[in-house]
Design a protein around this nucleic acid. Sequence first.
DNA 1: TTAATAAAATCAAACGTTTGTGTACATTTT
DNA 2: AAAATGTACACAAACGTTTGATTTTATTAA
Lengths: 353, 353
Amino acid sequence: MKFKYFSVLPQDMQSKPPTIKEIARLLKLSISTVSRALHDHRSIGIATKQKVKSLAAELNYEPNQTAIFLQQGKTKTIGVILPELAEDFFSTAVNAIEDIAYEQNYTVLLAQSHDDEEREKQLVEKMKNHRVDGLLISVAKNTSSYEHFEQLKKYNIPIVFFDRIPCLKNIHFVACNMETGTIQALNYLIKKGHRAIGLINGPINLYASTERRDGYINALLKNRLKFDPSLVINCDLTKKEVELAMDKLLKNRRKVTAVVTFNDYVALYAINYLRHNNVKSANEIVFVSYSNLPLIQYMHHVPAASVEQYPYKQGQKATEILLDILKQKDEDKPENEAFYKVIIESNLIENLK
Amino acid sequence: MKFKYFSVLPQDMQSKPPTIKEIARLLKLSISTVSRALHDHRSIGIATKQKVKSLAAELNYEPNQTAIFLQQGKTKTIGVILPELAEDFFSTAVNAIEDIAYEQNYTVLLAQSHDDEEREKQLVEKMKNHRVDGLLISVAKNTSSYEHFEQLKKYNIPIVFFDRIPCLKNIHFVACNMETGTIQALNYLIKKGHRAIGLINGPINLYASTERRDGYINALLKNRLKFDPSLVINCDLTKKEVELAMDKLLKNRRKVTAVVTFNDYVALYAINYLRHNNVKSANEIVFVSYSNLPLIQYMHHVPAASVEQYPYKQGQKATEILLDILKQKDEDKPENEAFYKVIIESNLIENLK
DNA sequence: TTAATAAAATCAAACGTTTGTGTACATTTT
DNA sequence: AAAATGTACACAAACGTTTGATTTTATTAA
């Protein structure tokens, strides 16, 4: 059982990674000297620096991050919690987050809430335990209470929300203004002659839903059309509810000729529903959606236009803000009580036929 | 500048998170007693345990993981490096990895190589510095040298490869046997009467490409058809090269009536290429691909069948193996020189029309 | 030569835990 | 009554760093 400890170690296997302690011992120097030598501290002689560095290289020394984390009280890690990686919007945002974070030597601790509030809470807890320096969150669509976020403030862990942001006053966030995009979408449809335009919207508690609704209403009013509430249907974005919503729209007393959908997935579900139920008007209904799935161009019935939400830009901006906050904390700047509130304008993009 | 340090702290803001040290001080106990009390150690009196626990709860104490990491020499974190999160195969695999890891109280450090060997190397380095307990990797498609993986062995960080595995002897891996699926695919096509079947394959250095090729050849031979090398084309899976490959197949002296593509994306690119170039035979060519993109059902020209590669199962299995290895290490089991080599059989799944 | 200065290196504490060992005191055994 | 056992706690080292304060050594100025 214990025999292996008596075996002569074959070169490097099994041997613990080298530490500055080890280097110090070998070179008959103090630990602090080694540490400072490796950091090019001015109070260390050039000759010593050389010796230390070359031995470090030879031993393949790598500083133990966990020790540094403890010592410095930070982990150089940012946590990211988002609903669903499989959604293109989020995986693109993650690309940006990773890019920026790595640039500044941060690591990314990623986790998915799968749109489950309970899991989201657990993840926040986990991130806190892991002592991430900061957190980037896009909240689950049915998250209704925000205490778990408040907790982090007590731990002095800054949060930057992006895209799916909670309705709270004092938070940092980056989001896309969906209202402008929605107005563009409606103007586009109205100009094409559509009058009965449906809106398959998301959950009522999402700010994104409110924005779409507001844009929808405002555009109608600006165009001197009256707003018919029965043409706006909220759903939880699942396939089933989308189909129900589409069905409701079809049964509306007015003949709906265009539908604006919360995102490309909703559009897909709706279009698919029409096809599979052989709805006669299937090809007559024009869709406009949000999000711009890259795969959309390969679909059989392509939405006429999509509102681009700039996921990369959002992820990028959110990360930059978070890192900026962290930097300010490092520099011990007086607690800045201002909140970053970045809003990116959405834009309608017509899809090539 | 320094004024704020004199201010009376408003309840909890700014104050450092509580530690067991703090609890010990308040309760006039030793640090070790507090630690043991929180761990329900048998040598601590029940009354003391009560006092400690209730104060801990009151102060909202949470153990500082970074300290524990250092003390225990492990981080309860597994690193995951994969090519591209946006690919559905990988995001599904990540779902499994997260699920299993969280179940066993591990955290996941995720990073994408974007199929860039250089970046992959940097990430491996980063993971090593972060002292992840183990690594899950699906290698970049153009990775040709494997020294960066060898390095980790010296650090005693186990690696489990999944799906995209390198051609190395002594490694743990989970992969899908693409040969069986490929044979099924060819049998399917041959039974339908196809004789000139093209194969748009991946990069030559990927094992997955070899498997597909082998399955392709074997199925032909078993069916007493002769193998025509000009019908097999390797490419790097980019849209451009796929189109080139498709073009080559069209120009082949034999009239290709079916094409097997490396994955659904390749199929999409190929099909799209046919459509956009108004190739007359576009609708006559039957496609069979791998991977089963969930969105495939919404495409205008759906591959007739797909070889399922079970990304969730692969991710799950790989994580289980890694955690198992870690557990064995914990229990100080004699270094087991056996390597896990799990192979999951792929299966052809016909797509509903 | 001696004091003052600069340069180079060391000491020791700290970060927050865990854990092996030591030590009181009370309780039981002989 | 002395010895053995058990209970409940404290002490201190360790994990690998960083860093303020201090000491040693070499260099320069007076």
